[in-house]
Nucleic acid binder design. Structure first.
Lengths: 346, 346
DNA sequence: TTGAAAGCGCTAACAA
DNA sequence: TTGTTAGCGCTTTCAA
């Protein structure tokens, strides 16, 4: 394994001191130098195929030019686009990303955060935050640059980039109402995640606004955002509130699980029960019956969070808003129809 | 931002030399030390919440405990499970991964490889290799630990972990034959990727084995493994070889595109044309008509490649086989049916 | 405009 | 069994 060229090698080859080489190679610091020596040094560097040792740079400057990206689970299809969005901003800025999967486990989250800090990351984008997670708060307070994405911490001064949860829920809620639904159940997400809680609260608020009695708008909370939980909770809804004509799910995977549950019960979506989702994850359009859902802008979310993190790392934290809410839009497909003309509503 | 505790701090606190602290904290090297001083030092370290500075460790030892994972595109759903498989092995071994997306562009691939090397990664798992990519070969020859995954380099001594492409193609081919298909077209992948080439060759070999005239088994090659290319190539097949009763696609996304093309032409899968895929990507089971495909073991692939890389990095390269071929299996769903009883075949 | 020297935090000869 | 010393490759004062 041929040893890498170092500054010292170039210094020797071009007959100047290492510190001069260091300066000559950095456009910022080469200003005071003679054009002649700058050229000579750069020529030698190119000739010898010099690439700076970033580890040494990091030790000296205390900057690794690396960020940590915490996600719940990369196999969950909504996260890859977010990661690409982050990369699109960070890579040109010279940063690499270490991606870790927390599986939404508090223990793993804490341990992985520590690992990232041990590795000296310059900042963290956290898309897996639990609403109250002391370790991340402590890290932020001790000076680590952090922004949360998709989710927010409770009562926090850690900047966050989230989607318009309230607006999104209101969009599907109003759609269902316009179709004539009176008995809408909410298949809620875990309330220890801000997404779960915000959507749930938005649902309740929408009910209140439109004068729907909470008794006619049951809420069942999933413990995870996945198909199995969607199925389980949908069954619970069907059992406890058989007069339900629509299920407003807190995300697409829960909605997909709900549709499976309906099918298992011999019911059809949308004929018997309408279902809506949230996220508009990839390939959703290809899955029957075509879920009506809320589209979020995953790429944009990643880019925005990355830009904010860059600003914070450059000590321009004052320029980044505590709260950034990204617009969402309604995607109508085929999972919503008028309530069937039987049961209590007729 | 409170300064991190260093060895020096602990040395001062516990009244011994830094090198003693360094030894005491490493179970390997603490053997010669008094139990007494080891305890004292470790207590102080815990007390002061010491976490080793891995950058300094890296500079000194020339090991970053970081690997690079090169991927074509993380938003392509077959890669996240691979990444998790890699992580499952590397994380317990103390390694972090820097994931980069090459978008299958030669220029990006070369540049990103350089970036990873600049960052001093200890090894690379390359799932995005083009068949002949000089930069990765050069890197491997110069001593960097590399294994390729999913794809192999041409004429290489870089260890690779791939799926049983030949066996998989043979499985779907035989299935189609058993259903009575005589006119099978191959929707091939890009031939600059080993997957594309191996599957194509396997298809040709299968034709030869079963006495099918290549003229009755047209091959159309996609430039990318995506739905758009699948659609485009399927249209070409339908136009040039209208007597085709089955399309054997080189992967699921091409197959999905082919099914769209059929639909656009007013044809139905499987009634008019049978279609098969490869990979069995996530959520495929939920997309109608239910693609018959080859299941590959993405998690396992990632784990195996990671274990091989670990061995190579530990200079036990002799123990890792140049070639590892993972078993695949047939997943029958609803996209294959007997050829319709019209046209040239009756 | 360039050189000298120090030092980031750690490990590893070598001494004692 | 522990301490001393050097040095990984780089940047950054401080001098000249």
């Amino acid at each position: 394994m041929a040893k890498r060229t170092t500054l010292k090698d170039i210094a020797k080859a071009s007959g100047v001191h290492v510190s001069t080489v260091s300066r000559a190679l950095d456009p910022q610091r080469s200003l005071p130098l003679t054009a002649e020596v700058v050229d000579k040094v750069r020529a030698a560097a190119k000739e010898m195929d010099y690439h700076p040792n970033r580890v040494a740079y990091s030790l000296r400057t205390n900057r690794t030019m690396t960020i940590g990206v915490m996600i719940p689970d990369i196999t969950n299809m909504i996260f890859p686009p977010i990661v690409r969005g982050i990369e699109r901003v960070m890579e040109p800025a010279g940063y690499a990303s270490i991606i870790v999967n927390t599986d939404s486990q508090r223990g793993r989250e804490t341990a992985l955060l520590q690992t990232l800090q041990d590795r000296g990351v310059d900042g963290i984008i956290h898309t897996a935050a639990l609403r109250n997670e002391p370790s991340i708060v402590r890290a932020a307070q001790s000076g680590l640059s952090v922004v949360t994405l998709n989710r927010k911490l409770d009562d926090t001064d850690v900047p966050y980039v989230i989607n318009d949860e309230v607006g999104g829920i209101r969009l599907v809620f109003d759609l269902l109402r316009n179709y004539g639904h009176q008995r809408i159940a909410h298949l809620a997400g875990p309330s220890d995640l801000s997404t779960g809680l915000l959507r749930r609260n938005a649902f309740s608020a929408a009910c209140a606004d439109t004068g729907i009695d909470p008794l006619n708008a049951p809420i069942v909370e999933a413990t995870r955002f996945d198909e199995d939980e969607g199925r389980r909770c949908a069954i619970e809804i069907l059992d406890k509130s058989p007069e339900t004509t629509a299920i407003l799910a807190a995300n697409d995977r829960l909605a997909l699980g709900a549709i499976m549950a309906l099918r298992e019960r011999g019911l059809s979506c949308p004929r018997d029960v309408s279902v809506t989702g949230f996220n508009d994850m990839p390939f959703l359009d290809m899955i029957p019956p075509g879920l009506t859902t809320i589209r979020i802008r995953q790429n944009t979310a990643g880019e925005v969070a990355a830009r904010h993190l860059l600003a914070i790392m450059q000590r321009k934290a004052a320029e980044v808003p505590l709260e950034t809410i990204l617009p969402v839009s309604l995607v109508e497909r085929a999972s919503v129809a008028p309530p069937r003309a039987t049961g209590p509503s007729c």
